[in-house]
Design a binder for these strands. Structure first.
Lengths: 121, 121
DNA sequence: TCTTTATATCAGATCAGGCTTATATAAGCG
DNA sequence: CGCTTATATAAGCCTGATCTGATATAAAGA
């Protein structure tokens, strides 16, 4: 199952959205999702398993509770794939900004580079 | 079928990658994909149908040929969904840059706003 | 017009995903 | 310890996605 397939399911997307605000125990997630989608506890648990096994979440045990949290790895990969298409809608400046933010940040902070692409003439 | 499901299929992802370099007739796409994945012509045609019907491509007829091209709409929506998680891996500067590129670009160019968040004290 | 080329659609088979009910595991508590 | 709470796994069913081979449609060319 590819990362995109994992995100194809609305329940799994919702779980990730909920986790975006911070870690949550399986039970709390389950309650919300069950209310919203009308599915059973095992169904939720199976979705959590898919998310886990594909690296979208981490889990840590706290007593009997399982605390889930977002693991950004696969989302990042998807973002990287999308990058090849971003030029179809993003203005060129954004690409530059991304580049800037990604690689040149530390260089700038250390060397105090006077060369500045931000102000286009 | 959700946009994420559409991208879940490797054949469809490949087709979009090929189209990223510009429009191509179904036949050319088909040849490449058939070579790479070992599937039949109808299979490719069905994938093209999925891409079409979910808004990932446009088609225009040129004689008997169908020229496919990327339609960025759904990819953009996916990008928007991902935005809610980007803070997990992108440095804050990138978010600012995105914001900048998206909405404030013209304002800045016109008004020459002296208010500058870029330099955090 | 007849034939070839380009692409799409149809019908049927197969397979994977997701759901449910029932059950297992393990911690918390009286 | 038993009982309850929290979560996971198992087994079986059902639906929908994708594939193939056959066929339809339509443009191009002899």
């Amino acid at each position: 199952m590819h990362a995109f397939d994992v995100l194809g399911d609305p329940v799994r997307r919702r779980i990730l959205e909920l986790l975006a605000d911070g870690e949550q125990p399986a039970g709390t997630l389950g309650e919300t999702v069950r209310r919203e989608f009308g599915i059973s506890q095992p169904a939720v648990s199976q979705h959590l398993k898919v998310l886990r096994e594909h690296g979208f979440t981490t889990v840590r045990a706290e007593g009997a509770r399982r605390l889930y949290a977002v693991d950004p790895g696969p989302l990042r990969e998807i973002d990287a794939w999308l990058a090849g298409f971003r030029r179809f809608w993003a203005p060129p400046l954004a690409a530059l900004a991304t580049e800037l933010a990604r690689g040149r940040r530390e260089r700038r902070l250390r060397e105090d580079d006077p060369d500045d692409e931000r102000t286009t003439p």
